[in-house]
C-alpha cells in the first residue's frame, strides 16, 4: 500500500507538469496584457516598456515559462503584478476562507444527500422518491449564480435574515455565530449542485446493492430493515460513491469561484477572478496549479479509500 501511494505520488509529477504547460499556454494566448490594467493610461510608452522588461514579459513565452517553473520548483510562486505581494502569502491569506466554505458545504452536501439517496432507493417509485428525484434534477439544473442571487434577494434583501456577503461583520471581534451566519448562504449555494449529484449517485448505487443476494441473506438472518440497509447495504453502496466524491473535490474550487464572487467571500476563487481581470499571471498560474494538485490528490484519495473500503481490492 505504501509503495503504491509513493508510486502514485511520483506519477503526479509529470501530470502536474503537463497541466502547467497547457495552462501557461492558454493564459498566454488569452487576449490582453497585464500592464494595461496596472498602469495609468497617461503613462509614457518608455515607462510601459520598462515595466514590461522588468516583469520579463518581453521574453519569448518558453523562456517566461522556464523562468516561472524554475522558481516554482524552489517553492517561489513569484510576486503579484498588481498587488506587489508574494503570491504565496496572498494564497495563504485566503485559503482558510475557501477551506471553511468547502468543508462546510461538503458536510452539508453529504449529510443531506446520503440519507435522501438511501431513502429514495429503499422507497423506489414512492412519492418521496419522486420528490427527491425532481428536487435533485432541479438542483443540478439550477446555475449557482442564479440560485445565489435568488437566495440573497430572498434571505438577505427581503427578509434580512442573513448578511449580504463577507466572512464576518466588519470591525467585530471573532464570533462563531456571526461566522456561521455569514457562512450559511454561500455554503448552501456551493453545496446544491454536488448535493443533487451525490443524491443521484447514492440512489443508483443503493438500488443496485439492495437487489444483491447478500441483502436477501441479511434479511433471511432476521435482521431489521435498518440493519439490512445501513450495515449490509450502505457499506457496499458507499464504495463507488466515495470514489466519485474524491473526483468531486476539485469541483468545489470551480464552484467557489462563482460563489465567492457572489458573496464577496475573500477566498481563492475571489482572488482568481480579480487576478484574471487584471491579467495577474503569477496569481492565475498559482491558483490553477493549486486546483490541479487538488484534482490529482482527490483522485489518489478516491483510490486509496476504495482499497480501504473494498477488501476485494489489493495493491
Amino acid at each position: 500500500m505504501t509503495t503504491y501511494i509513493i508510486r502514485r505520488l511520483i506519477m503526479m509529477i509529470p501530470i502536474l507538469f503537463g497541466i502547467s504547460v497547457i495552462s501557461f499556454a492558454i493564459m498566454y494566448a488569452a487576449p490582453g496584457k497585464p500592464t494595461v490594467m496596472d498602469l495609468d493610461p497617461d503613462i509614457s510608452v518608455e515607462a510601459r516598456e520598462a515595466q514590461m522588461e522588468r516583469l520579463g514579459l518581453n521574453d519569448p513565452p518558453h523562456i517566461q515559462y522556464i523562468n516561472w517553473m524554475s522558481n516554482v520548483v524552489k517553492g517561489d510562486f513569484g510576486t503579484s503584478f498588481t498587488k506587489k505581494q508574494p503570491v504565496r502569502d496572498m494564497i495563504a491569506d485566503r485559503l482558510p476562507n475557501t477551506l471553511i466554505l468547502m468543508i462546510f458545504s461538503t458536510i452539508l452536501a453529504v449529510i443531506i444527500a446520503i440519507p435522501f439517496g438511501v431513502l429514495s432507493a429503499t422507497k423506489q417509485y414512492s412519492k418521496l422518491d419522486y420528490g427527491v428525484t425532481i428536487t435533485s434534477f432541479l438542483g443540478l439544473a439550477t446555475p449557482n449564480f442564479w440560485l445565489g442571487l435568488m437566495l440573497i434577494m430572498l434571505f438577505s434583501v427581503q427578509l434580512g435574515w442573513t448578511p449580504v456577503g463577507g466572512v464576518s461583520t466588519l470591525g467585530g471581534e471573532f464570533n462563531l455565530l456571526d461566522r456561521l451566519h455569514h457562512l450559511i448562504l454561500p455554503a448552501i449555494v456551493l453545496a446544491t449542485a454536488d448535493m443533487a449529484g451525490l443524491t443521484r449517485y447514492t440512489r443508483s448505487s443503493m438500488l443496485e446493492v439492495i437487489n444483491q443476494d447478500y441483502i436477501r441473506t441479511a434479511r433471511a438472518k432476521g435482521f431489521r430493515e435498518k440493519t439490512v440497509i445501513y450495515k449490509h447495504g450502505l457499506r457496499n453502496a458507499l464504495i463507488p460513491i466515495i470514489t466519485i466524491f474524491g473526483l468531486m473535490l476539485p469541483t468545489f474550487i470551480g464552484g467557489s469561484v462563482i460563489v465567492e464572487q457572489l458573496f464577496s467571500w475573500p477566498g481563492i476563487g475571489h482572488l482568481f477572478i480579480s487576478a484574471t481581470f487584471e491579467r495577474d499571471y503569477p496569481v492565475i498560474m498559482a491558483i490553477t496549479m493549486f486546483g490541479a494538485v487538488l484534482t490529482v490528490i482527490g483522485n489518489l484519495i478516491a483510490d486509496i479509500l476504495y482499497a480501504v473500503l473494498d477488501p476485494r481490492i489489493e495493491y
Binding site: 447478500y214 441473506t217 449490509h232 473500503l309 473494498d310
Partner: peptide, 8 residues
Amino acid sequence: MTSLNPVL
C-alpha cells in the same frame, strides 16, 4: 458466490 456480504 454472491450470497455472502463482500465487505464483511
